[in-house]
Amino acid sequence: LIVDEAINEDNSVVSLSQPKMDELQLFRGDTVLLKGKKRREAVCIVLSDDTCSDEKIRMNRVVRNNLRVRLGDVISIQPCP
């Protein structure tokens, strides 16, 4: 998924579009594992966002710094076991 700027300022939340959440079989409030660069990982709570496009994930600056990614970078997402 492509990293995009978050609207809310919550450090533990990322936003996906509802069709993408359905495709990944995620529900609102699920915890997910995000994988960024240099084997960096972060655990976040996923919320749906109608304004977010299907191929993007919204996260704020703190999460991006933790993953060592910038806007427009590609990250992977998976549900936490």
Rank of each mutant, 00 (worst) to 15 (best):
A42D: 13
K20F: 04
V62W: 11
L1R: 01
E5D: 12
D10L: 07
I75R: 01
K38V: 06
I77L: 13
I7H: 06
C44K: 14
L1M: 10
D4N: 03
R28K: 14
N11F: 05
V43D: 08
R58D: 00
L47W: 09
V13I: 14
L26Q: 01
I2A: 03
P81G: 03
F27N: 11
N60I: 02
R39V: 07
C80D: 09
D54F: 07
V63I: 13
K38N: 15
E41Y: 06
L34W: 01
L47K: 10
C44G: 12
E41M: 07
L16M: 10
D4R: 02
L1T: 03
D30V: 05
E55P: 08
R39A: 12
D4Y: 03
L26S: 01
K20D: 03
M59K: 00
I75Q: 00
N65H: 10
Q18T: 06
I7S: 10
D49R: 02
D10G: 08
R39Q: 15
A6I: 12
C52G: 05
R64A: 11
V69D: 00
E41T: 07
K35V: 07
K38R: 11
S12C: 09
L67W: 00
I77M: 08
Q78A: 08
G29R: 05
R40M: 08
N60V: 03
V69Q: 02
L1K: 04
V32G: 02
D22K: 09
V63G: 04
M21S: 00
E55Y: 10
S15N: 15
V46N: 01
V63Q: 09
D49L: 00
I77Y: 01
L26H: 02
P79N: 11
L71Q: 10
R28H: 15
V74G: 08
K37H: 04
R61D: 11
R68I: 02
V32S: 01
D73R: 02
G72S: 04
Q25C: 13
R68V: 07
A6N: 12
K38I: 04
V14E: 00
L1C: 07
R64K: 03
G29E: 05
R40S: 09
I45Q: 04
F27Y: 07
I77V: 14
S76N: 05
L33K: 10
C52N: 03
I2L: 07
G29T: 03
V3S: 01
D10K: 12
I2Q: 06
S15D: 02
R61G: 11
K37L: 11
F27Q: 08
V74L: 07
T51V: 06
L16F: 04
P19Y: 15
D30A: 12
G29D: 05
M21K: 01
N8K: 12
K56G: 13
E9N: 15
T51S: 09
S15R: 12
P81A: 10
Q78T: 12
P81F: 05
V69E: 02
R28G: 11
R39K: 10
V46E: 02
V63L: 12
P19M: 13
P19S: 14
E41N: 03
L47F: 14
T51I: 05
D50H: 11
I45E: 14
C52F: 02
V13G: 09
I7N: 05
S17E: 01
V69F: 02
S76L: 07
I75E: 02
L26G: 01
L71R: 07
A6G: 13
V3Q: 01
I45A: 12
D4H: 10
I45S: 11
N11K: 08
K37Q: 15
S12K: 10
L33D: 02
T31S: 11
F27H: 13
N60E: 04
N60T: 11
E9H: 07
R40L: 10
K37G: 09
R61Q: 10
D49F: 00
Q18H: 14
N60H: 10
S76F: 10
G72N: 10
E23Y: 06
A42S: 15
R64F: 05
L71G: 13
K20E: 02
E9W: 08
G72K: 03
S53H: 07
Q25D: 14
I7R: 10
I77N: 00
V74Q: 14
E41H: 06
L71T: 15
V74T: 10
L47P: 01
D49S: 14
E55A: 11
S53V: 11
I7M: 14
N8E: 13
E55K: 10
V74I: 07
D73V: 00
V32F: 01
N65L: 08
C80L: 13
Q25E: 06
K20Q: 11
G72T: 10
P81D: 14
E9M: 10
E55M: 06
V62R: 11
T51F: 06
I7K: 11
L71I: 14
V32M: 06
N8H: 10
V43R: 15
E9V: 06
L47Y: 08
L26K: 02
A42Y: 10
V3I: 10
